[in-house]
Design a protein around this nucleic acid. Structure first.
Lengths: 228, 228
DNA sequence: CAGTGTGAAATGCTTCACAGCT
DNA sequence: AGCTGTGAAGCATTTCACACTG
């Protein structure tokens, strides 16, 4: 498939084709009128804009179950991320092989960041260690941090933090489950009488399949992640 | 602190106080004019609306590093989730203890779902097994699925799926890093001449601290998770 | 008097619809 | 003829501002 139309892409993504065209137009005019978008060229342009064509060395701190899972996660390499080092504070972990890499001790943190020009760090430590690790990463020169520990990190201006809470997604599902059950039993719970219900009147719970054009509803509005 | 005002809460959350009051008003009138909101009562009402006061039995399928990390994750229990069972297809895993629970074999899946009245399933298997596991969960009566496997799942109408891609957050950080670097060098890359840049003119990269009222910017607009 | 709850205004985002290009 | 790119209309969300209440 050498080219693709906004209509086809929009159907696949479940959005309006005009929105898709307008969004693309912010990146530039990469389409051809009467034809559509050249797939290869479009993919390259979007990849470049998103930073996927760059090589991003990252360090991962805290090689427990989650850290190991992340280190083994295939999606990183294919999106331009290169794990420069796995770091753990536990001396018993030092030298162990995880995802084909030897775990290094936390003492090496500053040296690793400096020598590899790392600007992005991933924290997968227990909550208690996270702020301390964060401070050291920042002091060493890291300016973006992805935090999986259940703590809100404090960082100086100019440093980005994103916090991932793995339970929030479950909560969103549970919220919808509750509504499924409540709808069936004519929910005698809401204290709002004739007002606008949460999520609008008779909120649709079922997720639209990919390709459906109905992407309305409360689902996409709930971010899984918040800036710290 | 027995009561709290919309102004205080809004400052803490980094949003406008009017928005906060309007949002709360959709749940009912739980505030007292001239005083504020009773903290305990408010927490209870919000918890109830979100479904946190219910007990949600869940099953987790695929007890590799990620599954184990999730099973050990403390945030679940505190939000009303109860891990009813850990399931893995590998016979070598059966009976092993993870997060204080014995792993059960996949053969038991239907029985477990049925006996525990499970309506939410978590899939942390390799990509290849995910659809098959999903089908079995759905057939057994599960109506909400949280998918950590890097596959788009197909489900019948009435079943909710949420897909979590752990690399998307990294990508968002990398995107901002790229802009930090680009801004310093007067970015000679954008093909848009005088148009509206992605994220608006001179997009602010620095994350606002909690408590800041400036929550504008492209950050919150990028969902980490998409409906499948 | 302090602070909620909420119409109405302001702002922002999405969709329409069509001129313009290939 | 077909499909992009985009002003303008339509719709939704956010904020203002103030009547009302404990």
């Amino acid at each position: 498939m050498p080219t693709v139309s906004s209509e086809e892409l929009a159907a696949a993504a479940g959005v309006n084709s005009a929105k898709l065209r307008k969004d693309f137009s912010y990146l530039g005019s990469y389409g051809t009128r009467g034809v559509g978008y050249d797939v290869e060229y479009l993919v390259y342009q979007i990849s470049r804009e998103l930073g996927l064509t760059q090589d991003w060395p990252i360090v991962m701190v805290g090689i427990g179950n989650l850290g190991a899972a992340l280190a083994n996660y295939g999606g990183f390499a294919s999106r331009g991320f290169r794990v420069a080092a796995l770091i753990d504070a536990d001396p018993a972990m030092t030298g162990k092989s995880v995802a084909g890499m030897a775990v290094q001790h936390a003492d090496e943190l500053e040296k690793i960041v400096d020598e590899n020009g790392v600007s992005i760090g991933v924290i997968a430590t227990p909550a208690g260690a996270a702020q301390q690790v964060c401070d050291r990463l920042v002091a060493a020169g890291v300016t973006s941090i992805l935090n999986f520990a259940p703590t809100v990190l404090t960082v100086p201006d100019g440093v980005d933090v994103r916090k991932v809470d793995l339970s929030i997604e479950l909560q969103i599902l549970a919220f919808h489950e509750q509504r499924k059950a409540g709808d069936a039993a004519d929910e005698g719970e809401s204290p709002v009488e004739g007002g606008v219900g949460v999520g609008g009147p008779a909120a649709k719970v079922t997720e639209p399949a990919p390709g459906s054009s109905d992407r309305k509803g409360p689902d996409g509005d709930v971010p899984a992640v918040m800036p710290a």
